[in-house]
Amino acid sequence: MPLTARDLMETDVETVAPDDEVSEVLGRLARADFNGFPVVESETSETPREDGEAVDGGRVVGIVTQHDLVHLFQTEDRVLWLPIGLPPFTETLTYAIDVSWDDLDLGIDLAKHAGRPIREVMTADVVTVTPDTDLDTILDLLADDERDINRLPVVENGELVGIVARQDVLRTIRDQRRESKR
């Protein structure tokens, strides 16, 4: 029987909400063993999983990754152009001075973006799969040259039920190969 997302997915999924602040999500991501969270608009009730435990119910509205958050703190053009030339000189020369002091920049960026809601920085065009999506389709999505997908939220009846990470797929393929060699 071919493998599906149901066979590969992790059902204990950590999520964030669209209104969670960037600083809070950064803190959670720093403590996590993975590089992104599905962004979920949660229902008030929890949806039971097959094993009897509960997973946060809700509709996937995006995904936020390390890349999305680090991008907020990358220095862009931080060059200060100073005109030099005082009267009586009629011509001025313009000099570029790099004012990007890394620690100061990071502090300024952190203060500027810390309170922003995740909905402003998340990827809204999130690729999802269903529990019945086959391994070949999952491999195609994870190996897509145009998108750098590392985690695929698994959605059933409009609700998040699990997640398949690239690492989960690689581990499963490795284990299958080992079994076939025995």
Rank of each mutant, 00 (worst) to 15 (best):
D56N: 08
R59T: 13
L141A: 01
L82K: 09
Q66V: 07
E120V: 12
T94D: 08
D132M: 13
D103H: 02
D125T: 11
I84C: 07
P87D: 00
Q74I: 15
D33C: 04
A111L: 05
D77H: 10
V25F: 04
R28V: 03
E46Q: 13
R174T: 14
S45M: 12
V13Q: 01
V169G: 00
G158H: 03
N157S: 10
R116M: 08
A124T: 15
R171T: 08
L160P: 03
W101K: 09
D68K: 07
R59H: 12
A5Y: 01
F73H: 15
D134I: 01
G115H: 13
P131A: 02
V155P: 06
T65C: 08
I173M: 03
A111D: 05
K181R: 15
I149W: 03
A30I: 14
D102P: 12
D105A: 10
L142N: 00
A111S: 11
V39N: 09
Q176H: 05
D68M: 06
R31L: 14
T137E: 13
V169P: 00
T15H: 05
L82I: 14
I63R: 03
T90R: 09
R28Q: 12
R49W: 01
E179L: 05
G107F: 00
D109S: 13
T11G: 08
L152A: 00
I138R: 00
I163N: 05
M9E: 04
D7H: 14
R119K: 10
V79R: 14
L3G: 04
N35A: 11
R171H: 06
D168M: 00
E41F: 04
V169M: 01
H113R: 10
S42P: 15
T172K: 12
S45Y: 15
T4V: 00
G115V: 01
D77Y: 14
G58W: 03
M9D: 07
I163D: 05
F89G: 08
N157K: 03
E41K: 10
D168R: 01
R171N: 10
E43Q: 10
A165R: 13
G115Y: 05
L152S: 01
D109Y: 14
D140R: 14
L72S: 11
A30N: 15
T90Q: 12
R116G: 10
I138C: 00
E43W: 11
L86P: 03
H67Y: 09
D68I: 01
R31Q: 13
R166I: 01
S100R: 04
E10H: 10
V70F: 09
W101N: 11
E91T: 13
V64M: 08
M9R: 04
A96E: 14
N157C: 02
D109R: 13
G85V: 09
I118S: 05
W81R: 15
D109H: 11
D20P: 08
R6Y: 07
L106D: 07
D33G: 12
T137H: 02
R147G: 02
P2I: 06
W81Y: 14
L135T: 02
L26W: 13
D132P: 02
D98L: 00
D20N: 15
A143D: 11
L106C: 08
D145Y: 03
E91C: 03
P2Q: 11
I97M: 09
A143M: 09
L29M: 14
D7M: 04
D68A: 09
R59V: 11
Q176Y: 06
N157Q: 09
